[in-house]
């Protein structure tokens, strides 16, 4: 027990160090920008004294270490600065945009796991056969198409040519402003409002980006599942179970898979983090009002506070997910001492 506690403490301290590094890195990114933030705020033609005053107001006349401490102080108070573009505090914007990304990424993860895990298990059982090769090609293809390309192709085929799917965006204009924001997750909010047409509309709008993101991350899940399962199937207990006369299905899902499931927790956490990256591009193509689109729009307008804020947030989620995976692994797997 003591040893387990010690290793947990080591993990936590390394996480804290990483978090500190994240703030240093984002601080530096925010400082080395091509445009002077003061000029960006007051304009090119502002008189000298206004520039000096604004510089002092923004704290940019202080030495760099002081500025960094100030940055940490602001972060500790949940203050990511103001967005020049939306005229809102970045924290407010993030709270508004994050649920859309969360909804997208979570749905995609569930779908990817539902398809990717069975595919990986199947490939492992049929290792070296044509099925295995076919699954490998499908998965590698998913990892070789840029997400923006898939999104454009999907819009072209299913929206423009076949008219099966709705266009970009999160809901139809007719539902705009009809649904009260409770959680910010549209599928849940429409259910709370009891509006099934709006719910169906929200689901339809989600279908394309979710399927694309799921395909993109399914590749990784399936490949890892395959690798883990191949190892698990070599276990003597599997041979024993087979020799006892248990059916193949029972041996695979009842005996081999549970030992793999714990390792898959880590894979899921990493996949979820990767989905946030995919979401940046997908949201841009589908005009999905999440933090990905917020990030790219701010980038194109050289609005650095939102860029730094979103980058930091995504980094935090990344570290958090890894920590959760690590803890779950320790808790769930009795083999970890």
């Amino acid at each position: 027990m003591n040893r387990r506690f010690k290793s947990l403490a080591a993990t936590l301290s390394s996480v804290l160090l990483t978090l500190f590094g994240l703030t240093v890195l984002t601080f530096l990114i925010g400082r080395v920008m091509p445009v002077d933030p003061v000029i960006a705020a007051v304009g090119d033609n502002a008189p000298e004294d206004v520039i000096l005053r604004v510089r002092a107001e923004m704290g940019l006349d202080q030495p760099i270490p002081v500025q960094f401490l100030h940055y940490l102080y602001q972060l500790a108070h949940g203050d990511f600065g103001m967005s020049v573009l939306t005229k809102n505090p970045v924290a407010t914007d993030i709270v508004r945009f994050f649920p859309a990304t969360f909804e997208l990424a979570t749905a995609a993860l569930l779908l990817a796991a539902l398809i990717g895990i069975p595919l990986g298990v199947w490939a492992a059982v049929r290792q070296g056969t044509f099925t295995d090769q076919a699954i490998r090609v499908v998965c590698l293809a998913g990892h070789s198409v840029p997400v923006f390309m898939l999104s454009l192709i999907s819009l072209l085929i299913f929206y423009s040519w076949l008219d099966l799917a709705p266009g970009p965006g999160r809901q139809d204009i007719i539902f705009d402003g009809m649904i009260d924001t409770v959680t910010g997750i549209l599928t849940i909010d429409t259910l709370i409002a009891g509006d099934f047409d709006a719910f169906k509309d929200a689901l339809a709008h989600m279908a394309q980006p979710v399927i694309i993101l799921a395909y993109f991350s399914m590749a990784y899940i399936a490949r890892m599942t395959r690798a883990f399962m191949i190892d698990a199937l070599k276990g003597e207990y599997v041979i024993t179970a087979r020799a006892k006369g248990l059916s193949l299905t029972k041996v695979i899902w009842g005996h081999a898979f549970p030992t793999v499931a714990v390792q898959l927790v880590t894979v899921m956490a990493l996949t979820y983090a990767g989905l946030l990256e995919g979401a940046v591009v997908t949201e841009t193509v589908f005009s999905w009002p999440g933090i990905g689109q917020y990030l790219t729009v701010s980038l194109m307008n050289a609005d650095m506070n939102p860029v730094v804020g979103t980058t930091l947030l995504i980094g935090l989620i990344y570290v958090g997910l890894n920590l959760i995976a690590d803890i779950l692994y320790r808790v769930l797997d009795p083999r970890v001492q």
Partner: peptide, 24 residues
């Protein structure tokens, strides 16, 4: 390895985007 971890703590594209924005 701590420095490595810090850089690993971001999805590649997001960090690259932020860097490019900061450079040009």
């Amino acid at each position: 390895m701590r420095i490595t971890d810090i850089f690993l703590a971001f999805p590649r594209l997001v960090l690259a985007l932020a860097f490019v924005a900061a450079l040009k």
